[in-house]
Design a protein around this nucleic acid. Sequence first.
RNA 1: GGAGAGGUGGCAGAGUGGUCGAAUGUACCUGACUCGAAAUCAGGCGUGAGCGCAAGUUCACCGUGGGUUCGAAUCCCACCCUCUCCGCCA
Length: 427
Amino acid sequence: MLDIQLLRKDAALVAERLAARGFAFDAARFDALEAERKTIQTRTQEAQSHRNSMSKQIGMMKGKGEDTTAVMAEVAGLGDELKQLEERLAALQTEINDFLMGVPNLPHESVAPGKDETANVEVSRWGTPRNFDFAVRDHVDIGESLGQLDFAAAVKITGSRFSVMRGGLARLHRALAQFMLDTHTAEHGYTEVYVPYLVNADSMRGTGQLPKFEEDLFHVPRTDAEKLYLIPTAEVPVTNLLRDEIVAAESLPLRFVAHTPCFRSEAGSYGRDTRGMIRQHQFDKVELVQMVRPEDSYAALEALTAHAETILQKLGLPYRKMALCSGDMGFSAAKTYDLEVWLPAQNTYREISSCSNFETFQSRRMQARFRVGQGKPELLHTLNGSGLAVGRTLVAVLENYQNADGSVTVPEALRPWMGGIEQLTPA
RNA sequence: GGAGAGGUGGCAGAGUGGUCGAAUGUACCUGACUCGAAAUCAGGCGUGAGCGCAAGUUCACCGUGGGUUCGAAUCCCACCCUCUCCGCCA
């Protein structure tokens, strides 16, 4: 959520900056709503104040045993008008809030303008894609011929966009997650957290998935009041750890890492990446989350991105770092770097991590704050990034480390988590 | 799932219709005393929002949402959550 003070001061400027990301901000509507809100709120508060002082007077008079019928008759007539004002004000505030909840974050000044991913800027590139002296196969062929990747079984058990792994491949998947967790906790100063995979609507609103993107989420019905959602990323439960909290400035920065499954309905992606493990309804991810002081957040974004890059480097996977343009960023982000890993079978780089600074966009929704000494609470800045998406990392390892005989070499860095296994071979 | 108890400020804990946004204790901040600290004493100390150049002022908030009333932390209804015991269970 944007700062409403900024909107009041200069809605036109906000509209201009949002246009850069393809969002049409209706400044006229906002101004109109605000104008009415201001009038109604002032009148409501005056009426409330009047009623309060009259009621107080009745209390005082009764305390002294005086007759109050005259005053009570006077205040009795106030009820209807006050109720109407209060209802109108509540409706207006709901409307303004709904309106604001649907407005995306402002892009940071360093973000390149652009309509879509074609305007993203390549920041750097690491590693050299390997030359294969045999026909490369994609991860589906590799995994299935190993007898360790089974989409047919997943379709039977659940449906499309799920997978079953067995044996060494299942272990490789687990090893990847543990390798990532151990690296981030031991080398990058993150605290490992275990969190719920089902969250309530308030949490989804806090990080920005709701109200706008409900169709992307799976949910568990129950009653409306207690409806729960499956997390699309650990960002949701982990960032919401700070919702409605005020932490001491000295405790910042907070750095959390969590390994969780993620669930996405993939509504609107029919026909895209239907083959293999690239786009699944359920996938594992190791997520990095930071809460920092505002002045530190852009340095933190660079650091967090570098933490994710470390994983790719240790695994020897070639990748490139992209700075997303204004039109390609997610709803809540002020600035985003994507890391794209080289996939030989697709002969291209594919997203494997997305690292963003949300500034106060999430913390304002969540009222996640910090306090310097005895000072006023201030909104902190939140960041997160994949460190990394485990499923896609598995795909990258299979494809980049495949051998002519159909086996797959286990990257050196993973071997401590593989119980000495150096190669995946058919069972 | 059954039975009971309970949700009040950072924490503890009063308050069951009226100067209650809320006693008191504790924690914390400032000052006094002290060489310094402790103890003691005095004062301060919730969050959000509106209006205002400011000083300030107004409103809302006692789990959440409704209701009754001139007036609700207090009464009524629904829901959520926590705790205890029983049952079941990894």
